[in-house]
Design a protein around this nucleic acid. Structure first.
Lengths: 94, 94
DNA sequence: AATCAATATTGATATATTTAAATATATGGA
DNA sequence: TCCATATATTTAAATATATCAATATTGATT
C-alpha cells in the first residue's frame, strides 16, 4: 500500500470533492449503483476529460474502484484503502 | 483544519521521511529534545535549504511544530493534527 | 562589535501537475 | 452495420513544485 501515492491523490481539492461524492463499494447483497462519470461532471461542473483524469489518479492510488454496467462506469470509494491510510496517520500521531 | 493542505504536505517522499524521523511534541513534564534541522540534513543526506523548505511546508500544514533552544530549532510531530487527519480518512472510509 | 553556527530566504532551473480542447475508444441499441 | 452515448487518451499551455547555489537572518559567544 503506497501511502505516499494515496496522500498525493488526496491532496487536491477536486479529488477530495469527488471522493466525498462517491458511495462506498457495494456489497454483493445490498447492491446500489454509485456515481458514473457524467454525474460527477455535472455535480462538480467540471469537464469530462478532467474528471476522468482525476478518477484515474484516484484509481491508481487504489482509493476508488469501478464497475461497468452497460455503457456506464460506476465509481466507488475503496473504504479499506481509506481506512488503512487513516490508521497509518493515527499511528504516526502516536 | 485544512485537510487538503495536510494531504498535499504528506504526499512527498522526503516529507514523509522527515515526519517518520521526528519525535512527538514534548509534554511539559517529560521533556526531551527532538531533531534540529542539521540532524535531519545529515540523516536524510539532503541539503540544508531543501530540508528547511520542506519543514516550512509541514509547518504551514500544521503537522509539525518547532521549539527554539539557543541557536537550534527543534522540530516535532504535531500528533493532534496527524490523528485528526487520520480520523477524517477513517470516516471517509465509512 | 565581530564572529560563528544554525536556520531561513531568494533566485534560477528542471520537472511535475492541472486543465482544456481535440480526438479516440468502447459499447449498446436502431 | 451505423449511430449515439459514455468514458478515456493525447496534446498543449499555464501553473506549481522540488531542488540547488548563493545570500540573508538570527542569536549566542568571545
Amino acid at each position: 500500500m503506497d501511502f505516499e501515492k494515496i496522500f498525493k491523490a488526496l491532496g487536491d481539492p477536486l479529488r477530495l470533492k469527488i471522493l466525498e461524492l462517491l458511495p462506498s463499494a457495494p456489497s454483493l447483497r445490498s447492491f446500489r449503483h454509485g456515481c458514473n462519470v457524467n454525474q460527477l461532471v455535472e455535480k462538480l461542473k467540471g469537464t469530462q476529460p478532467n474528471i476522468s483524469h482525476h478518477l484515474k489518479i484516484l484509481r491508481e492510488a487504489g482509493i476508488v474502484c469501478q464497475e461497468k454496467v452497460k455503457n456506464n462506469i460506476y465509481y466507488y470509494k475503496n473504504n479499506e484503502a481509506l481506512r488503512q491510510a487513516g490508521k497509518f496517520l493515527e499511528k504516526l500521531g502516536d
